[in-house]
Simulated scan of single mutants.
Amino acid sequence: MTVLTMSAAEVSRFDTLKRLDRGEIRPVDAMALLGLQRSQLYRLLKRLRRDGAAGLVSRKRGRPSNRRFSDAFRDHVVGIVRERYADFGPTLACEYLAEQHGITLSRETLRQMLMAAGVWKAKVAKRARLHQSRYRRECRGELVQVDGSDHDWFESRGPRCTLLVYIDDATSELMHLEMAESESAFSYMRATRSYLERHGKPVAFYSDKHSVFRNNNATADSDGMTHLGRALDRLDVEIICANSPQAKGRVERANGTLQDRLVKAMRLAGISSIDEANAFLPSYIARHNARFACAPADPRDVHRPLAAHENVEAEMVWREERTVTASLALHFNKAMFILEP
């Protein structure tokens, strides 16, 4: 038994034509209701009298679209993705197909192709969680979120390392990326120095409560500052520590994006060391920002240039205070250093 399925528009057309056939409305009224010319109206009426309701069902239903890509083209695209971008999502795969192969497709079209070929599985929609978003800062350089992301960035081709991420709160623009062996004070000093020399001084850095940014064991005898905090204080840059990962959500989401996109970009470029990655990162930043950065509410850039008397290289160092004894000696790290008179 064949089940006839009609769309809402076809049901409405059927009802109007039946009323016309029974003489309840005039042809001119039916033409106005259906938006048809007289010849079209009577052609449909003739089809209704001959075939019944089935005559009004679109004859294109169940047939391939005239705009459908050929099977050969679909096989070609799926073959490229299967060979080179097997673990890429449809969005990222679309971008690489356009950039590297000159094949322009919509994300949804590619997703349907990959699902039909068994290369991609549809994801279950996540239940939306309600939360209050923090408004962006208005100007570029007003607040820069900072975080370190420990990850297997080279997919076992090289050592596991940490990516230091600096992202502007107003624009979601990646300001600086740097690979380091670990999330240490010296790594942050080196990366922050590069940031300041390139962009100038932001109003504030926004970080978590990592010991590089906050002294969690401060006592009454100390000022409570870390070595990096003391250097930034001398350069008049504030450090704000977030109370939760959600508070610095912009850099946390950027970490997730980078762990997906940057890992794949470095794989395609054959990068397997920290030095090679740091040479590659500036070009990746430009491509990432072209895709994800947005315009700030206020077009001003509030980064401040370094003053002539501010020596970033001299400030970004590890400083320890020691007292020289009467015998011109000082103790540091379980060793005694004797000074020349």
Rank of each mutant, 00 (worst) to 15 (best):
S244M: 05
V237H: 07
G229R: 07
A231V: 02
N216S: 05
A242K: 02
R234W: 06
L228M: 07
A247F: 05
A247E: 15
N215G: 03
N243L: 06
F213H: 00
A220H: 12
H227R: 12
R234N: 07
S222G: 06
I239E: 00
L228R: 03
C241H: 10
G229D: 08
T219Y: 06
R234D: 11
S244Y: 14
V251R: 05
E252L: 06
G249N: 07
S244W: 09
D221W: 06
T226C: 01
I240C: 00
D236W: 08
R253I: 10
F213I: 00
G249P: 06
R234A: 15
A254I: 00
S244E: 14
K248F: 05
K248E: 04
G249D: 09
N216K: 10
N255K: 13
V212N: 04
N255D: 14
R250P: 02
C241Y: 04
G256F: 00
R253E: 11
D223N: 14
N255E: 13
M225R: 15
K248A: 00
V212I: 08
A218T: 12
R214V: 08
P245K: 05
R230E: 11
H227A: 14
L232Y: 10
I239C: 05
L228F: 07
A220M: 11
F213T: 03
A231W: 03
N217T: 11
S222W: 00
E252N: 07
E238F: 08
D233A: 14
N216F: 01
S244H: 15
R230N: 08
E252Q: 09
L235T: 08
E238Q: 14
G229K: 05
S244D: 15
N255C: 14
R253N: 15
A231F: 02
A218V: 11
E252V: 07
G249F: 12
K248R: 13
L228Q: 04
P245A: 10
A220E: 15
S222K: 01
N215S: 09
